[in-house]
Amino acid sequence: MCLAVPMKIISISTDRATGSADFDGVKRDVNLTLIENPCVGDYVIIHAGFAIEKFNVEEAEKQLEIFHELAEAMEGQK
């Protein structure tokens, strides 16, 4: 029930309360009132029609890099 996917904000209403977001071409209206300072281009986690938190791209890249290095290191050990 708590499943939620990262979507990219593509537009924001003038009162900043709602907007629309995109995930691989699928668009959806989202409520933005639960997060601080939403901006177009931000990735957000959407649950039950609400953005519940921002998705931090830099942190994601860092983590992917760690896993990537790990796989390479293991490869080298073979």
Binding site: Q63, F67, L70
Partner: peptide, 20 residues
């Protein structure tokens, strides 16, 4: 999407499970 698929990488999965 990269930030989903990236965390479903079988080589890395094998590596982490070996570490475990």
């Amino acid at each position: 999407m990269k930030y989903i698929d990236g965390f479903r990488n079988s080589e890395s999965e094998v590596a982490v499970s070996r570490q475990i």
